[in-house]
Computed example of a mutant assay.
Amino acid sequence: MSYQWLEWAQRIQALSQSGLAFSKDIYDIERYEELRRISAEIMVEHTELEMQKIKDLFLSDTGYQTPKVDVRGVIFQDDKILMVKEKLDDRWSLPGGFCDIGLSASENIIKEIKEESGYDAVPTKLLAVWDKNKHPHPPEAFHYYKLFIQCEIIGGQPLTGIETSDIQFFSESDIPSLSANRVVESQIKTLFEISRDPNKETLFD
């Protein structure tokens, strides 16, 4: 799904943030602040977010802007995929979340799987690196790359966490209602396709 306005808003925000990070001229700083305000107005016009919420998001991010990173754990057992139910929207997703500073992608996904599902897991293969803007996710203020990492369970037991209320394995024909901010059905189906072809190369946008 294409959101041209979202791409414009994100680009304007990125340019304004970079300008504010490196500019010393007071007049340039004023112009970059105006650009940031315009990008926030575009977001308000096309989403349900309030202006103050968007301003808070933008103001909390400083320095040269790059895409943020989200990791998702992909665990198959008996032709079924592990999913967790998110408390935030009562919908299902792959275990995962935004990467924490100081942890590698592998370390992040091990932590997320443990916290959200109770399982101990080891990463085995990077399956896909997908640009969130190029898939049918709802629009968001920032630009994200999503890393889908295949993992194997080596221990633990199913336990819900602070952010999850249920843990189940689902077949391809029984995909539940998904938390679309986190994962969409086309991605889940592609992951099932990959699971049937272990020699398939990593996918990326």
Rank of each mutant, 00 (worst) to 15 (best):
62 T>W: 10
53 K>T: 10
2 S>V: 02
202 T>H: 05
192 F>V: 01
94 L>I: 10
53 K>Q: 11
102 G>K: 02
122 V>H: 04
132 K>D: 14
24 K>L: 10
138 P>H: 01
143 H>G: 04
98 F>V: 05
151 C>H: 07
133 N>A: 05
195 S>R: 12
86 E>S: 15
144 Y>A: 06
126 L>F: 00
111 K>N: 01
128 A>K: 10
161 G>P: 03
89 D>A: 14
162 I>T: 07
121 A>C: 03
2 S>K: 04
33 E>N: 08
179 S>R: 06
35 L>T: 07
131 D>T: 07
32 Y>Q: 05
138 P>S: 00
142 F>C: 02
78 D>L: 03
124 T>N: 08
128 A>N: 07
120 D>V: 08
64 Y>M: 05
66 T>M: 14
46 H>A: 06
47 T>W: 04
168 Q>H: 15
62 T>M: 08
150 Q>P: 12
174 D>Q: 15
175 I>N: 01
183 V>K: 04
14 A>N: 05
199 N>P: 08
1 M>S: 06
5 W>V: 00
15 L>V: 10
52 Q>Y: 08
61 D>Y: 11
81 I>V: 06
202 T>A: 05
79 D>N: 13
15 L>H: 00
36 R>L: 10
107 E>D: 10
109 I>N: 00
147 L>D: 03
86 E>A: 15
202 T>P: 00
91 R>T: 09
153 I>S: 02
124 T>I: 12
84 V>R: 09
35 L>A: 13
58 F>N: 04
15 L>T: 06
171 S>D: 06
121 A>K: 13
38 I>C: 12
162 I>Y: 15
67 P>V: 02
145 Y>A: 04
101 I>L: 06
12 I>W: 14
